[in-house]
Amino acid sequence: MVDMDKKVMARKMGRLIRSIWIFNWFNSCGVTELLPVVASIYDMERFGLIVVDNPKHADVLIVGGYQTEKSIKRVIRIYNQMPEPKAVMALGSCTITGGMYWDSYNTIKRLSDYIPVTIYVPGCPPRPEAVFQAVGMIFEHVNQLKKEVKGK
């Protein structure tokens, strides 16, 4: 995110975490344990998260699975289309260090070389509870930021 005044950022993030709209960009198996998150038991709509269908409406871009040289260009384009304030969640080990494909000639090894990543969720593939823990960490971080700003 661009540098904003801390008070403004605390207010914007405070409003953002109440209703997060997600855009998915999945390549392969990293996502298979994320699909139940939308469904009945690990219901993600109770926290206000819904899935939208184009990046211009979205706040968070979830990048899952290995990215190739061809698809990382599209990811950068999609990231540039999202309006501020925005965040990126890197899902799965393949986006953190290359994962299972660390010695492949066609995949990229670290997602953070290409776009700024807010939170990493390790796992191959990560369990649904891991995604909820990640979202919870973002909530705690924003609440702490708001407390700091209010305390000043």
Partner: peptide, 22 residues
């Protein structure tokens, strides 16, 4: 499922007015 809280559309609208206009 259990849905969002009843105040959720208000949160949605407040968030939308904070975003950048492109």
């Amino acid at each position: 499922r259990v849905g969002p809280p009843l105040r959720q559309p208000f949160y949605d609208v407040l968030k939308l007015f904070e975003k950048e206009n492109i």
